[in-house]
């Protein structure tokens, strides 16, 4: 999306940090499409990726406000052309065994992976950028998609 911006944060891994960040977005009426968090290369620090939809002037304001949070050590806007992004999706299918073959074909064609096969359900893992995941989900939906869980986007500048 044109106005989609990716913000990368390096934060102190401390109770309440996520709340400070999400509270800032709520209070100031900023949009948050997704947020992912996990440990960074440094012990005690986490890296957070936020996807937001806003215009150029507002994204600067968001970054400046984030930088004011004491537990945010770095807040940077990632440049789209120099950034790789990816997300992970788990897709649970409710399918009759006689259609497994078709689904496995789709999985293979899309470079996805099957994590679990049960008597009536199947869990598929897909990795890729947002458009890729959207595409896989669209292809699988007609076969009886019953649960979808996506991590949200992770991003890193080259």
């Amino acid at each position: 999306m044109e106005n989609q911006k990716t913000i990368s944060l390096l934060v102190k891994d401390h109770p309440g940090v996520m709340q400070r960040i999400t509270s800032l977005f709520t209070r100031r009426g900023y949009n948050m499409e997704s947020i992912t968090v996990g440990p960074s290369e440094e012990t005690g620090l986490s890296r957070i990726t936020i996807i937001t939809i806003c215009d150029e002037s507002q994204v600067d304001q968001i970054i400046f406000q984030l930088q004011k949070l004491m537990e945010v050590f770095e807040a940077t806007l990632l440049r789209p052309k120099k950034t790789v992004t990816s997300e992970l999706a788990f897709i649970k299918m409710n399918v009759e065994p006689n259609r497994y073959g078709e689904i496995l074909n789709l999985v293979e064609k899309n470079h996805a992976t099957v994590l679990d096969i049960g008597s009536k359900t199947m869990i598929i893992q897909a990795v890729g950028d947002t458009e890729r995941i959207d595409e896989i989900v669209a292809q699988l939906t007609p076969y009886g998609l019953c649960q979808l869980s996506r991590t949200g986007v992770m991003a890193m500048e080259k």
């Binding site: 309440g16 509270s23 004491m70």
Partner: peptide, 14 residues
């Protein structure tokens, strides 16, 4: 208290 005052403090500690 920390949660209630988060948006109206420069910083807070428990």
């Amino acid at each position: 208290t920390i949660g209630i005052t988060m948006p109206i403090t420069k910083h807070s500690y428990q």
